[in-house]
Amino acid sequence: MFGAILYTELFKIFRRPRTYISFGAIAVIVLLVQFALRVNGTEFIRFFTDSQADTFEIPESQILNGYFVCVAILHLILIHVPLLVALIAGDMIAGEAQTGTLRMLAAQPASRTTLLLAKFSASTIYVILLLLWMALFALGGSLLLFGQEDLVVFRETDLHIISQQDVLWRFIAAFIYAALALTMIAALALLLSVFAENALGPIVATVCIVIVFTILQQLKVPVFEQTINPWSFTTHMLGWKGFFYVEKTSEGVTINGSVENPMALVRSGAILIGYTFLFVLVAERVYRKKDILC
């Protein structure tokens, strides 16, 4: 029964024109960033390397490779993808309540728990497909346009050079982690969707929550750094970047296959899973007992 309902939920998602807006938007944004970096990539890199231009020969043309462009694209757009996820997940219950189809679904033999879990699973599959699409354009496209080379990752306080043989698994891990983070956003949107009878409400609310916590994180003031931020999901959503922070030996040489402080990544992943579980659990509890009046 679950499989049949999941199939129908996916069928509905992918028969809806709105779904393809997200895929189209991602393709356009990625292509625009690739075009911009093709034209002004050197200036973009100089922004990061300016302080070291007097000390080092900066191999700008080598730095500007497919892997670097892909990381730049992920930096630029992954923070906005929650909006695209909320568009679908926030609509899952509230959208159907708004259009009146929810009562038809809820009157079917499948339990509400099954229905909700199928909707959550469909949202998760949508997230994964969206990320695969992004990977195809951002990674595949960038490698095609800019070629392969070692990856240079800039942080506020240091830079990491990762040899190209050691890069691909990091992208795979980063995309999996991003899927985890966006699934949590889908769970949040689904939870808010359960309370609403209008799709716009949960979509806007989800985006607002992400924006508020991102601002708190960017403020970097102690009052939030020590209280909210360690537990804020937006802090841990950035964990995908952790796969591009590499460990080095005492002599400064990077260790292939290493990740700087992997336990922090494990903790962040666990927190995201915890939030996802919590949001789905609360959504299920509320939805199971909810009177469908619309």
Binding site: I5, F11, M104
Partner: peptide, 27 residues
């Protein structure tokens, strides 16, 4: 089988797709 008030169906699906969908829902 039920119709509850004004039936609001999925505007982006066809009649055949609706029947397929509700058949699957019924197992």
């Amino acid at each position: 089988g039920a119709i509850v008030e004004k039936p609001d169906l999925y505007k982006y699906l066809s009649a055949m797709e609706h029947l397929n969908l509700f058949a699957r829902f019924g197992g």
